[in-house]
Design a protein around this nucleic acid. Structure first.
Lengths: 232, 232
DNA sequence: TCGTTGTTTATTGCCTACAATGTAAAATTC
DNA sequence: GAATTTTACATTGTAGGCAATAAACAACGA
């Protein structure tokens, strides 16, 4: 009872700054990125609006926004569908993501300092330990935090936004499992190479190192893809 | 009379595939990018819907889409405003655009052939001629076509979309004139350097050459900016 | 049996109208 | 002149309705 009142209040608080459309958009985005709504699945207007207790208007506005963000496709008179990223498009995205991540390396090479290197080495040690214990479920979030820290530290908000947008889109890949598999098998040596490149302060070297890191995930993704096609 | 009937028919044809929301979105985007609606200006719902002869619904959906694309800001209970890109953000965008354009160079280095080089050299000669005649109004569209051809030739649709999105956003920079000024003073030598890099087939060299080309516009933009601040 | 042609039904696209809320500016008061 | 209240206006969200369309289904004929 008390809890209900509390959530209602915080809902109201959210609505004071953010519109209902915005809330619905985040809600839907969450459902999509967690996989509760799967690629190809249709989003029924009436069904969703009754589920969230709103009218169709704000919901339609939210889906338009998600379309512009590339998370759903809207087909006239047919409806809204969770976007399904083809392997070809996934490969394209890997390249663009590599370019953006490479820029992060280039920018960081000019910003790097002892504090940053200490923090980065902390991540590296942590990942080494986890890898030794073969606890891959723990590896994933630390790996994510490592990359997040790098990208955010550039101070370039446009870059951060773009990078995250592409990471999100890769979650919509039809071969979603393969994307994760490609990331998991990263040896920590690649990460050390990146940090070393940063420490050198050489822009081009850092950029190339960061770029290649993503390209290697792309290659892993592609080979897993080919192997899967050969089998089934 | 005949002409009216014809346009109505083509309107219907457009509506068959594209929704009214989509038409409005493109229309508004056009108004914004041509500068008819200027950065900071407010988009009045009722005013616009009567202007276009539609109801509020599709118009609101269109503006939500434009918000997601980064062309407008929506402030709750206050309205929709044409986005105004600060000089700081413009500098950020230049960097990201450089990274993406650099990727184009890297990809093209593997795709380059005689036909492409012939086409590119055609652009170069054309721009040399125009520059000799000092007809800067003519220089701009050819310069644009040159870059467009490069980006499109990569075959990476994700890259193309992103690149164009950033070029558009730079049109919303408060110091819009400066952005154009930065582009106009490009010496054709930079362009030749890029084509040479492509011809060499060396990926890293091509990437770096393309990257630096955009970075140089950024630097020109920034110095014009500083000069303007010093004066006014 | 297969392909074609109506028919039905669910859903979207768009509209009008209305109530509630918030903002900004004008009017008023101190 | 500054602070406060009022007023006008705009946005936000809801409800209900109707035409258009597409997909599923049934009837039909070859």
């Amino acid at each position: 009872m008390y809890h209900e009142a509390k959530t209602e209040q915080s809902d109201l608080l959210v609505l004071r700054t953010s519109s209902l459309t915005g809330v619905l958009e985040r809600e839907l985005e969450h459902l999509i990125l967690t996989g509760e709504l799967r690629p190809g699945e249709r989003l029924n207007e009436i069904q969703l609006s009754t589920r969230f207790g709103t009218s169709r208007g704000p919901l339609r506005e939210a889906t338009r926004s998600l379309q512009a963000k590339g998370l759903v496709d809207i087909i006239r008179n047919r409806g809204v569908f969770v976007r399904s990223v083809s392997p070809t498009e996934a490969l394209e995205i890997y390249d663009v993501r590599a370019a953006i991540f490479g820029l992060a390396g280039r920018l960081l090479a000019d910003l790097v300092n002892d504090q940053m290197l200490t923090k980065l080495n902390g991540y590296l040690d942590q990942m080494d330990q986890i890898a030794a214990g073969k606890d891959f479920d723990e590896y994933y979030p630390v790996n994510l935090a490592f990359h997040d820290y790098l990208v955010t530290s550039t101070g370039n908000k446009t870059l951060v936004k773009e990078y995250k947008s592409f990471v999100n889109k890769l979650h919509l890949a039809r071969a979603r499992g393969l994307v994760q598999a490609g990331g998991l098998s990263v040896s920590n040596r690649e990460h050390r190479e990146m940090v070393d490149a940063l420490a050198s302060g050489n822009r081009e070297r850092a950029q190339e190192s960061f770029f290649r890191h993503v390209e290697r995930s792309k290659i892993r993704f592609r080979s897993t893809l080919d192997a899967g096609e050969a089998n089934g």
